[in-house]
Simulated scan of single mutants.
Amino acid sequence: MTFLEHLNQSDEARMIHDTAARWAGGVADEAVRASKGFSADRWAEMAEMGWLGILAGEDQGGLGMGAAEAAILAGAMGTAKLPEPFIASAVVCAGALTRLPGGAADALLADIAAGQTIAAPAGFGLPCDDSAPCPTATDDGDGLVVSGEVALCEAGPATGVFLLRTGGAETSLVRLDRDAPGLSVIPYRAVDGRHLARLVLTQVPVPAGAILARGPAAETALAHAEALAVAALCADAMGTMDRALALTAAYLNEREQFGRKLASFQALRHLIADMMVEVEFARSMADLAAFGADGIEDPVALLDRARARVCRAAKVVGETSIQLHGGMGMTDEMAIGHYFRRLNFLQAMLGQEAGALRRRAQALAAEVAS
């Protein structure tokens, strides 16, 4: 498939887009705030519509679709600023599992698609930072013993399973249940209110049946999951920016100063135009990221460029939106402040513009040196 073919959505993708837009538009801002980081009812609705199985195959009860369709749903999450771990569980974890053979991976994938299990990636995917150390695994008969720490994991009280990347003699991808002996889950909250956790592993035993992949098989699955993570996070940021831009434009058309609508001031209209330009530049790169996650064998370079451009737009849109709202924009009662905080969180997950550019520069330097 070419990129132009990717942009020409299928009938199924258009249906998902329309359904997601209607559903996200019907989620009240008050309901999001009242849910305090997670709504079991919204999660059940996503499962009923098949969204939690967007990447899972039909044999696992999923829709068997790809990164483009997952990105559509991620964008809807951003539009409604939903705190549920859709990307973490239904995209990153499910994406890794789709590249793994075996009954254990298929069973977990089916549980995720049905909404029966919420999984969290640990040590990969979120945040997109391959420089962070991962817990170390040592052989213990047929199984492993894992020790170490994962500083950031998108996990809340409803998270039941962790997909953990381990280092050591070789890379492994293992399943850890929340109540695994030796595993401590220390909760905290993100700036946008979603649930996060720090994992501390002290001699955690991993039986052979919980080792999903080792060596090259694990690395292939992890690379695919991280590509999907970038594409979905970029799409989430696009949905968030679109809504922030709409709220800001509406505010300028409603608010008056010196007897005139704020939208009548040319300088403010120019700022809105600058935001629109940034958003459209970023949208093109977000579309490329979704295409690259499935359509390119080695999409790392493209994904780094997408991360940089989307982070730049998120910074401009977030900061300008707050500026145009004035002091009211930072109050908890104004929705724009919550979108601003979400954009800050998404930039951190994507590694910030500077982080993406630094990683690309390091890759280019290594190519030149070789």
Rank of each mutant, 00 (worst) to 15 (best):
A314D: 09
L199Y: 05
P121K: 06
H195L: 03
E254G: 03
R360S: 14
H325F: 13
R358L: 15
P181F: 03
V161I: 11
N344A: 07
R255L: 04
I211L: 01
P187V: 09
H224L: 00
D177L: 05
V191W: 03
A137Y: 01
L52Q: 05
R165T: 15
S131V: 08
I87S: 07
G209I: 10
A71M: 02
A369R: 04
L152H: 06
R360A: 14
L233E: 08
C134G: 01
A76E: 01
R165S: 12
K315H: 13
A114W: 13
A180G: 11
A190M: 09
Q362K: 13
A44S: 06
E154F: 10
R165D: 06
L152T: 10
A210F: 01
P207K: 05
I87L: 08
D236K: 02
V279T: 04
G61L: 07
A110N: 07
V92A: 01
I211D: 00
D140S: 13
A293K: 02
P216R: 00
R358C: 12
D177N: 10
G327S: 03
R309N: 04
T138Y: 02
P157E: 11
D298P: 04
A180S: 15
I16W: 09
E226T: 15
L108R: 13
E30C: 11
I272T: 12
H325M: 00
V200S: 12
A235C: 01
Q60I: 04
Q116L: 14
D142K: 11
Q9N: 06
K81G: 01
T248H: 12
R341C: 07
S39T: 08
R342N: 08
R260N: 03
A40G: 14
G64Y: 10
N8Y: 09
L247F: 06
M238C: 14
A70H: 05
W51V: 09
T248F: 06
A151E: 15
G115F: 01
R175S: 08
Q9D: 14
T138K: 11
T171V: 15
S321L: 01
I211R: 02
R22E: 09
G102K: 06
G50V: 01
S370D: 15
V279H: 14
V150K: 08
A223G: 06
Q266E: 06
L245H: 03
D11A: 15
D242H: 14
G351P: 02
D177T: 04
D139F: 04
E45K: 10
A190C: 06
M349P: 05
V204Q: 00
